[in-house]
Write a protein that binds this DNA or RNA. Structure first.
Lengths: 352, 352
DNA sequence: ATGAAAGCGCTAACAC
DNA sequence: GTGTTAGCGCTTTCAT
């Protein structure tokens, strides 16, 4: 077992409470004598004593910890963790993280684990399937500080998300500004919850931009679907484009992987990108800048999502600490949609 | 405050210890009556009670938690966390993670935080500067289960690392098997601790492969250094190569970013890759497979590093739980070097 | 200026 | 079968 406050007290021949006071720097001036203070600090250093946060938290009711649950630590949402860290630690809160592999049962397990750790709040990216939403809503309704992130699932709980529609709108508008009117959209595989929740909004942003600029009556096949949503899917889409009678001058893709595949395919067929066909991605993945044609794409503000989520959580926590006992205060719902940035590189040409 | 065991006890009109017994499923058969059991379980469900792990851990001395500290959650070492999760949870241990941004002070802070959380062991990627090694050694020498990961710093503590030398050796040998003899090495910027600790071994692996195959007397300028170690650095290296009188047929790069830059530059100068000049990377970054020429590279087994590290930690923990009190047992040092894989793609040609 | 004692949520040894 | 009690490491009155 690790060194405890008692051990320190014994070695320094003082009482545990004295040690506690030294640690917590209370009443520094009048209460503890310099001698005692120094003696205790020396013993602490020698013995390598570290206070037990948990014993502490039992007493004061708070662990000063925020738990973040992401679906996959190897996905862009890891940046949410990064974004959360600084503002949290500024307020003296720790951040601990876990991942669920996007599975409902692992997610529940994670939440219970964090609750059993008495984290003061949880920031979570729920499973894409939406299975856990009921459970989350229950938890939320107890007043526990919970913020949903990353997917535009909900507006009935506190949440922060990419404004997917806004992102695509931005990208499409940019193409129009560059003189393009024949603009295709590649939605990938139009099935499943993920499509519905996170691709459809992008598609709608694209439509909205067209509409606002009076671009109507595009050929039906400008809405392109594919089997897969990866590099190969991008190649598939590009192949389809080349077969069209009236080719678009730009393709807006649902993600960067597909955009990369399309660029690769087009160039292998000696089509110039962006001059013959321009390409827009979504995601600003790490490889976007170093593709054979650096990719113009939409960059979701994951880090900022983390920041905003923490701020919401901390507000809730501080609030509920103040007026504990009195329920039913603080029942506002905050839902923040962050407008992603357009990163302009070389994959869209200026059309004269 | 959250629901406690007392609240549950009161609502179910039983004593706290009865609730505890129900939760911990002890003496199921004889001790607790079915009625009571059911009543308690019902109340638990209704009230949303979750046991306080920390209160629990104070009693039984273990938190069943392993802490992982990585230098940057947005780096390949995040896969160590992923790799650690499964084997840990199989043994009933939780994994919590934090990042240090590769700064010594944040690292100390993280460690203390985890210690104050009474994690049962820590897996850590120390700051590249090596500043914290003294501190880590101190901690290690107290017998606390600690495993160093990811950098081949140490053999005097338990550690798991990429066998960098072995990786480069493998890559270079492969080039030789393909018939190459004019093999250059691009080391990037040869300054700083990072170079010394993680690039020099790679370079030595390259040299060893040459030596074992009787390739000696390569031109001195086949050892290439650059200002930066990113995409631009790769372009810089490629530019240097093109100026050489006796050009190499392969360049082995210290990382994938530089390899990507070189490929890009060479192709923009109408040099064929791999036919005119072949390229080898190191790291198998996410973009390696979708470059204009898919990159042959070395893939470090980060996930496996996490797995191995957890196994070492768990052994230590179980061991010290068994013979607690009796110090000085279990003083073996385990140091594991994992041989990375060669991922063969299209950036190295067969030389006839 | 310091210590004794109670209590936080939980468990386990020991009553009943 | 179930309740009582003591104690884990720590903090915080309240005495002294």
């Amino acid at each position: 077992m690790a060194v405890t406050i008692k051990d320190v007290a014994k070695k320094a021949s003082v009482s545990p409470s004295t040690v506690s006071m030294v640690i917590n720097r209370r009443h520094i001036n009048s209460r503890i004598s310099k001698n005692t203070r120094q003696k205790v600090l020396d013993v602490i250093r020698e013995s390598g004593y570290v206070p037990n946060l948990y014993a502490r938290s039992i007493r004061n009711g708070s662990t000063f910890t925020i738990g973040i649950i992401v679906e996959d630590i190897d996905s862009p949402s890891r940046m949410i963790i990064k974004g959360a860290k600084l503002p949290a630690s500024e307020k003296g809160y720790h951040v601990i993280a876990s991942e669920t592999n996007d599975k409902a049962d692992e997610e529940r397990f994670c939440i219970e684990n964090f609750l059993s750790r008495r984290v003061d709040g949880i920031i979570i990216i729920p499973a894409a399937s939406g299975e856990t939403l009921g459970y989350l809503k229950e938890l939320y309704s107890t007043g526990f500080p919970l913020v949903i992130c990353g997917r535009p699932f909900v507006t009935e709980m506190d949440s922060v998300f990419d404004h997917l529609e806004g992102g695509s709108f931005r990208a499409t508008s940019y193409c129009i500004e560059q003189g393009h009117t024949k603009i295709a959209y590649c939605a990938g595989n139009p099935e499943g919850m993920i499509y519905k929740l996170s691709v459809l909004p992008r598609y709608q942003g694209y439509l909205k931009a067209l509409e606002e600029n009076g671009i109507v009556q595009l050929p039906k096949n400008y809405y392109i679907t594919t089997k897969t949503v990866d590099h190969a899917g991008g190649e598939e889409a590009a192949e389809a484009i080349l077969k069209m009678a009236e080719k678009p001058t730009v393709i807006v893709f649902r993600n960067d992987e597909m955009a990369a595949g399309a660029i690769h395919y087009l160039r292998s067929k000696n089509i110039r990108v962006p001059d013959d066909i321009s390409i827009v991605g979504y995601g600003n993945k790490s490889f976007a800048g170093i593709l054979e044609v650096p990719l113009t794409t939409i960059s979701p503000l994951k880090t900022e999502i983390g920041e905003r989520a923490v701020r919401i959580i901390l507000d809730k926590i501080e609030n509920s600490k103040k007026n504990k006992g009195s329920e039913d205060t603080n029942r506002t719902v905050t839902s923040v949609g962050l407008m992603p940035e357009l990163v302009i590189r070389d994959s869209v040409c200026l059309l004269k």
